[in-house]
């Protein structure tokens, strides 16, 4: 019998530290599978966030850099500008990307940086024990919204893909989920597209993956998947928010000049 499915090479052969049923592991594997299938492990540099996936540098076989909280898109910008020959991706959670790192995210997008951003949205700060995140749903109880998130006081959840798709530098903004095998397949397809965009010089690509946090949601892994389907996906609709050829989409603006003389 031949092996039909196993751990991809770009994912190191180590036990992941994530809680049982945490979908980070699925998303790690998808990124690694894409790296394997494109044959780019030796020419890829990943940038880790601060949060639950802070140790991702131990899990990916490519060279890795650990960024300060929220700054991964800026660090990735530095890598890509210094070494355009490398494939560069960031792997970030919702607190990292959509709260403390909002400026870095928005400006990397508007500059059309040729990087792939993998954005794991589970609506909570997992590493610090389940505090309210920028993407926590209205009414959701967390350790810092013990009466449920009240948008009048705590503000409204950020729809990251919708926001970033308004920026000219964004080539791909897509929201997927990892609740079912078809959705997992779609997520992988989009991660591949993000890496391919980068190789084509097509600008900033973000794949937002709706994910679970059984430990901090206080649910079993199976119940968490159910909540993801019944509460999160309806609030954050899946789909392609933007998918363009950046040069074509911005032809009028690019024609206004600025090329080095």
């Amino acid at each position: 019998m031949a092996v039909k499915f196993q751990r991809p090479h770009a994912l190191c052969d180590v036990r992941l530290h994530y809680c049982a049923g945490c979908t980070h592991g699925i998303i790690h594997r998808l990124v690694a599978e894409v790296i394997d299938e494109m044959g780019i492990e030796g020419d890829t540099v990943g940038v880790c966030p601060v949060g639950c996936s802070v140790f991702a540098y131990n899990y990916f076989g490519c060279d890795m850099i650990e960024a300060p909280h929220g700054r991964a898109p800026a660090v990735a910008t530095g890598v890509k500008r210094a070494r355009p020959d490398l494939n560069v991706f960031t792997y970030q959670g919702d607190g990292d990307l959509a709260a403390i790192g909002t400026a870095e995210t928005v400006h990397a997008a508007t500059r059309g940086e040729n990087i792939a951003v993998i954005f794991v949205n589970n609506g909570t700060y997992g590493m610090t024990g389940g505090q309210m995140a920028p993407t926590t749903l209205p009414g959701q109880v967390t350790t810092t919204s013990p009466y449920g998130r009240d948008p009048r006081k705590a503000g409204y959840p950020i729809h990251v893909c919708e926001m970033l798709s308004t920026l000219d530098g964004t080539a791909l903004a897509v929201r997927t989920a990892v609740d079912t095998v078809p959705h997992i397949r779609e997520t992988k397809k989009m991660i591949r597209k993000a890496f391919e965009n980068q190789q084509k010089g097509n600008g900033f690509s973000i794949v937002e993956v709706l994910s679970t946090c059984p430990s901090n949601w206080g649910l079993t892994p199976k119940e968490s998947i159910k909540r993801l389907q019944e509460e999160c996906i309806p609030y954050y609709p899946l789909g392609v928010y933007k998918d363009v050829n950046m040069e074509e989409a911005n032809a009028d603006k690019l024609a206004m000049g600025g090329a080095a003389k």
């Binding site: 031949a2 751990r7 036990r15 592991g25 699925i26 594997r29 095998v181 997992i184």
Partner: peptide, 13 residues
């Protein structure tokens, strides 16, 4: 195996 978060399943066929 695709659903497994820990690459704990290997499929042979």
């Amino acid at each position: 195996a695709m659903m497994c978060p820990d690459c704990a399943i290997v499929i042979e066929s």
